[in-house]
Structures are given as structure tokens and as C-alpha cells.
């Protein structure tokens, strides 16, 4: 069932993303073409500038579209009128959430890669540094980025799942939940770090960064991020299972 949900979700989102992707790919191609031309001609440099400008605007538009789509698909398709269909299909709530999360992650990754397409292509054509095979630490860092992305998306979902439990002003309540929980998490984070520091001072430990091996920090961060994903996912699922309140 998850496969079927994913099929329809990718279809529904592709019609928004693919045209922008195509436009950016064409712009990237144009820029490479223009750079290949001798740049002493004034017209060419002006054209390069214009195409570059449009590229930046398009890339910026893409980033905004990605964020708007990942929030609005969840809100509209699950918590709006379309939720009447999605929550009466014989699928589990977990599947419904994953069917939003996975495409949202794919499109975000795709959009990020596209924004750097010109840099990547130029590097490739100008015979620049060959693409390095990532070592363990780079791989760990990439994993952390992906987990952080998933955690952020799931955090947004959780806030919307909280907002929908209200009988009125659901979206406002979602935004309110986002701000308040972020604030609380920040305060807890600072307090926690401060507490650790104090504890360390009491125990007479030296908290020098040099003493901690890099890989353990990375591994710890990955585990913490994974835990955050799990917590946000489980809360969202519980809210949509037990506290669903479609308008």
C-alpha cells in the first residue's frame, strides 16, 4: 500500500517540480554554452550575466517551492478536504505519513542538487578536481544532513498534526505550535549544554574539543538526529490516529 501511495504522491508533486527542474536544467546548459564562447564580446558577457541572474532567481524560486510544497501537500492532502479520501483509504496512518515524507525528501535533495548543477557541470567540463569518493567522515556528515532534513520535515508534520486537533484556526495553531516548541527546544538545548558544562567543571573534567574524537561526535549527532526523527514521527502518527479532527 505504501508503494501505491508513493506512486500517487510522486505523480501529484511531479507536475509542480518537473517544469521548474526542466527550466533550471536549460538555464544551466545555456550558461555553460555562454561560458564556452570567447568572453571578449560585450554582448556575450551581458547575456551571461542575464542568464546567471535568471538562474539564481529560478533556483531561489525552487527552494521556496520545495518548502511550500512539502508543507502544503501534508496540510492540504491529509488535513484538508482531501483528507476525507486519504483517511478512508485502507492504509495505516504511518503509511500516509511516510508517503508524504519520502517524496518531500527526494524533491528537497533533487532541488538542492539542481541549485548546484552549474557548479557541478562546470567542474566536470573544465576537468577540475575529479569527484572524490567520500570517506567515512564525509559519508557520516551526509547521513547527518539527510537525517536533519527528515527531522525538520517531520517536525513540521508534527506541528500541523497538533494544529489540526483544534476546532478552529487550525493553521494558526500549527504555526503557534511550531514557534512554541522550537522555543522550548532551544531553551532546553542551551540549558542542557550549560548543565553539562557545569557538571564537567564540578567533576574537574576538561571539555576541550581536542579531547573528543571527531567520529564519536558525528556518530552521536547521527544517533540524536535519528531519535528526533523517531519521536516526531511517533507523535505525528499518534495524533493522526487517536486525535484526528478533520474540519
Amino acid at each position: 500500500m505504501l508503494g501505491k501511495l508513493l506512486k500517487y504522491e510522486f505523480r501529484a508533486t511531479a507536475r509542480l517540480f518537473l517544469p521548474i527542474y526542466a527550466a533550471i536544467a536549460i538555464l544551466a546548459g545555456l550558461m555553460l554554452l555562454l561560458r564556452a564562447l570567447p568572453d571578449d564580446a560585450r554582448g556575450v558577457s551581458f547575456l551571461t550575466f542575464m542568464v546567471g541572474l535568471i538562474y539564481v532567481v529560478a533556483a531561489f524560486g525552487l527552494v521556496i517551492t520545495t518548502v511550500v510544497v512539502l508543507v502544503s501537500r501534508f496540510y492540504k492532502n491529509l488535513l484538508g478536504q482531501e483528507g476525507y479520501l486519504m483517511f478512508t483509504l485502507p492504509v495505516t496512518t504511518g503509511q500516509n505519513i511516510l508517503a508524504k515524507l519520502i517524496p518531500a525528501m527526494c524533491w528537497t535533495i533533487g532541488s538542492s542538487l539542481l541549485c548546484f548543477l552549474v557548479v557541478i557541470l562546470q567542474n566536470f567540463f573544465s576537468g577540475g578536481a575529479p569527484i572524490r569518493i567520500p570517506n567515512g567522515e564525509t559519508a557520516g556528515f551526509i547521513l547527518l544532513m539527510l537525517l536533519a532534513l527528515a527531522a525538520f520535515i517531520l517536525f513540521c508534520y508534527m506541528c500541523m498534526a497538533i494544529g489540526q486537533t483544534f476546532n478552529e484556526h487550525k493553521f494558526l495553531a500549527s504555526v503557534g505550535a511550531f514557534i512554541i516548541i522550537q522555543l522550548v527546544l532551544q531553551i532546553l538545548g542551551v540549558a542542557g549544554a550549560f548543565g553539562l558544562f557545569k557538571l564537567g567543571a564540578l567533576a574537574n573534567l576538561s571539555f576541550s574539543v581536542d579531547n573528543i574524537p571527531g567520529w564519536s561526535v558525528l556518530a552521536g549527532a547521527n544517533v540524536a538526529m535519528l531519535a528526533a526523527c523517531a519521536v516526531f514521527f511517533l507523535i505525528t502518527r499518534w495524533l493522526l490516529d487517536k486525535k484526528l479532527n478533520l474540519a
Binding site: G83, Y84, F87, T88, K242, K243, L244, N245, L246
Partner: peptide
């Protein structure tokens, strides 16, 4: 009807 479908609790 919405209660019967679990759309509200």
C-alpha cells in the same frame, strides 16, 4: 458519519 469513519473522534 465522520465519527463512523474515524475522521473525528
Amino acid at each position: 458519519m465522520k465519527l463512523a469513519c474515524g475522521l473525528i473522534k
